[in-house]
Design a protein around this nucleic acid. Structure first.
Lengths: 360, 360
DNA sequence: GGTTAGCACTCGAAGGAGTTGAGTGCTAAC
DNA sequence: GTTAGCACTCAACTCCTTCGAGTGCTAACC
C-alpha cells in the first residue's frame, strides 16, 4: 500500500510462479499452491499479501472475490519481456527442420508455408504465414512453354519466386513458334520492372515477332496475372484445428467465433502487420492486440528478412496463457535458421551478382 | 402388427415428414408436430400409431421411451433412394459456379480443389477432394526454363495437368545451353510413358548434348519428382471449420474427435474410395460407413470422369441428418457441369486429336 | 375396421436449495 | 516483516422438484 513503485525481486519471483502455473494449468492460481510448489521459504499468507499487492499494481487480477489470481496483460508483458530464458538451441529439432526445409528451399512461397507448418507442429498453436508481396516486382525472366498446339504455359521469374499460368490461345500455333516468341518476350521484359509491361510492348512484340496481337493478348494477360500474384500478399493458416485442443475453448461457440475471426481478412492483416520494421520478434498480448476479438489471445510474429528485404512472416496465434517460452524460442530459432540458410544456400535471387566463371 | 411388408403410401408420407422435420430441427419429432405441420387429414393419434409401426419396421427409433422419433440408417436410406426430388437446375448457381471454374479450368488439380470449395460453400458441410493419380503417366512435354545461371525450372506436362520443380545445378550454365538442352530432353521424352525415363536415357542425353552427367542428374531428379507428383493421389479438405456450426457438435470433444478422425489417412481413403466404379453419386449413411467413427455421419461422393477416365472426386461429409436434397443435387449438378465443360472446353488433354488446321 | 379423443405414464430438461472446498482479506500475535 | 487463524465468499457439485412434450393404451366413434 505504502509504495507502488517497481516490482522487487520477491514480487517478480511470485509473479513468474503464478504465470508459470497458470500457463500450465489454465486455472486461477492460489497463494497456497505457490507456497507449496515453490520452496520460497514463505508462507501462503505472505504470498497472499504479495499477490494482493501485485493485483493492486495491475499484474494480476482475480475472476471473482474468492478465487485465485490470473495474469493480466501487463503481467504477461513483464513475463515476456523480462522473465523468459534465452532461446535454447535444440539440435534435435534443427536436423528435423532442416530436412523438412531442404526440399522447399527453392521458392519462398512454399518455404514459408513449410515454416508455418513446422512451427504449428512444434507449438501446437495456429500459425499464420504470409508471403510479402514485394512492392516493385522486377521481371528476371519470362519463358513460354508449349504444352500442346493451343495451350501455353507462361512462366515468369521474379526475385525469389516463380509464377506460372497456363493460357489458351485463340488459335493453334506450333511449338517452334512459341519457342521463338518466348525469346522475344524474354528479351523484351527481362530485367524490367513490372510497370514496364504495358500494352505498348505488345505492339512492339507483335511487330518484331510478326504475330497477330490477339494471339499475344492471352500471353500478356498471363504475365499480368503472374505479376499480380507476386504483388499480392498471400495468407495461409496452418493447424487451425489444433486450437480446439486448448481448454479455453470449453464451449463450441467460442471455437466457432474464433474460427470465424481468424478467417477475417482484416484481422489477419492486423495479426501480420503487427510486427514493425525491427528485425526481431514481436509479441502482442491480449488486450494489446488492435482487434477486440483477439483480446483473449496473444500473437507472436516473426518477419523473415533476406538481403535486407522482408520476404514474409510467420505468426503464432494462441491463448494469452500460451507457452511463450516455447513459441518465442522456436520462432526465433526458425527465423535464424531460415535466414542463415537463405544467405549461404540456394534461392534464385542470391545468385545474381555471382559471376558465371565456372560456366560449362 | 399384422403385416410387416412394404411401406404403404401413408407410412411413406409420414416417414418423409419425420425425416424432413428432423433434418431441419435436429430434434426428435413427435406425432403432434407432424399432425399440425402437415395437413394430412390425420390426427396425432393415428400418426402415433403409424410411427409406432415405422419404428417396429426399423425406419425410426426413439432415443428414449417418451420422446419423439429419430430416423434410423434404414430410414435415411429409403429417404435418399426414393423420396428426393430430382435435382433441380439452378441457373443462378450455374453462372456463379461457371465463373469460379473458368479460371481454374486449365489444370485438374486446381479445378477439383475449386469444386470442393464451391460445394462446401453451397452445402455448408466439409468437402473432401482428391485428384486421382493416373496410374500410367504419359509425358507430353518436358521443358527447361532457365531462371538464372544455376537454377533451372523443370516443367513437365502430362495429361491434364502441369507439374514443375525448380532445381539447382552443381555449376552455372548459360541460358542458351539450357534452351538447347531443353529441346533434347523434350525430343527424348515427349510422348513416352513415365517408366521410360530411366537412368539409361541420361547417358543418351549426356552424349547427344555433350554435357556432364552430373549436370543432368538434378534435372532428371526434377522430372522424376514431377512424375511422382502425378502418380500420387492428392487429398484436400475444404471447410472443416464449417462443421462446427452443426448443432450435433454440442461439446468440443466431439468436434475434436471428428477433426482428428477426418485427418486420418485411412478414414480419408475410405471416404474417397467409397464410390464404386459407377459413374453416378454414392451415398453412404451412418452405420453403412466402413469406419466406426463415421457412424454418425453420412458421406456423399461424386467421381468425375473425363473421357472415360476418373480424374478425381469430391465427397461431402456431414451429419447423418444432412440436407441430402441439397447436397445430392448440388454435387450432381457440379459433376454434370464439370464433365460437360471439360468435354467441350479447354483442358490440355482434350486437344490432342485436333489437327492444327488453323495454325498461324 | 380404421380413426380419434382422452388419460395415465415416462423421462429428459430446467431450475432451485443445500453442501463443499478452495481461496481470500483481515487481525492479532510472533 | 512474517505468520497463524478465522470469518467470509463464491463457483461447482449434488440432489430434488417441477414441467412438459411425447408416448402407449383403451374405449368410443363413423
Amino acid at each position: 500500500m505504502e509504495d507502488k513503485k517497481e516490482l522487487d525481486q520477491r514480487k517478480a519471483m511470485i509473479l513468474k510462479a503464478v504465470i508459470d502455473n497458470y500457463i500450465e494449468s489454465f486455472e486461477p492460481v492460489g497463494s497456497r499452491t505457490i507456497a507449496k510448489r515453490y520452496d520460497m521459504g514463505l508462507s501462503s499468507a505472505t504470498i497472499r499479501n504479495e499477490m494482493a499487492d501485485l493485483e493492486e499494481m495491475g499484474y494480476l487480477s482475480s475472476p471473482h472475490t474468492s478465487s485465485g489470481r490470473v495474469p493480466s496483460t501487463k503481467g504477461y508483458r513483464t513475463y515476456v519481456d523480462n522473465m523468459l530464458k534465452p532461446a535454447i538451441e535444440r539440435p534435435e529439432l534443427a536436423s528435423d527442420i532442416i530436412s523438412k526445409l531442404e526440399d522447399k528451399m527453392t521458392e519462398y512461397g512454399k518455404l514459408i508455408r513449410a515454416c508455418a507448418e513446422i512451427i504449428s507442429d512444434i507449438t501446437q498453436y495456429i500459425a499464420i504465414g504470409t508471403t510479402k508481396g514485394s512492392g516493385k516486382v522486377i521481371v528476371k525472366a519470362v519463358q513460354l512453354v508449349p504444352v500442346d498446339d493451343q495451350n501455353v504455359l507462361v512462366v515468369m521469374v521474379p526475385d525469389g519466386s516463380i509464377k506460372s499460368k497456363l493460357v489458351k490461345l485463340p488459335a493453334p500455333i506450333s511449338a517452334d513458334r512459341i519457342i521463338g516468341l518466348s525469346s522475344v518476350f524474354n528479351r523484351t521484359f527481362s530485367g524490367k520492372p513490372a510497370e514496364f509491361i504495358s500494352l505498348m510492348s505488345i505492339n512492339r512484340i507483335s511487330d518484331e515477332a510478326d504475330i497477330a496481337r490477339d494471339m499475344l493478348l492471352p500471353i500478356t494477360d498471363g504475365i499480368f496475372d503472374c505479376i499480380r500474384q507476386c504483388e499480392a500478399d498471400e495468407f495461409f493458416t496452418e493447424g487451425a484445428s489444433r486450437l480446439l485442443k486448448c481448454p479455453e475453448f470449453d464451449s463450441v461457440d467460442k471455437a466457432r467465433d474464433f474460427i470465424d475471426m481468424i478467417q477475417d481478412k482484416d484481422v489477419l492483416e492486423q495479426i501480420v502487420n503487427l510486427s514493425d520494421d525491427e528485425s526481431g520478434l514481436t509479441v502482442s498480448i491480449g488486450t494489446e492486440n488492435a482487434s477486440d476479438g483477439l483480446s483473449d489471445f496473444s500473437v507472436v510474429s516473426a518477419k523473415f528478412n533476406v538481403d535486407g528485404n522482408c520476404i514474409g512472416s510467420v505468426s503464432v496465434v494462441g491463448p494469452t496463457r500460451m507457452d511463450y517460452q516455447k513459441v518465442i524460442s522456436s520462432l526465433e530459432y526458425m527465423k535464424r535458421m531460415l535466414e542463415k540458410k537463405a544467405a549461404t544456400d540456394a534461392g534464385p535471387k542470391l545468385l545474381e551478382d555471382k559471376n558465371g566463371e565456372d560456366q560449362i
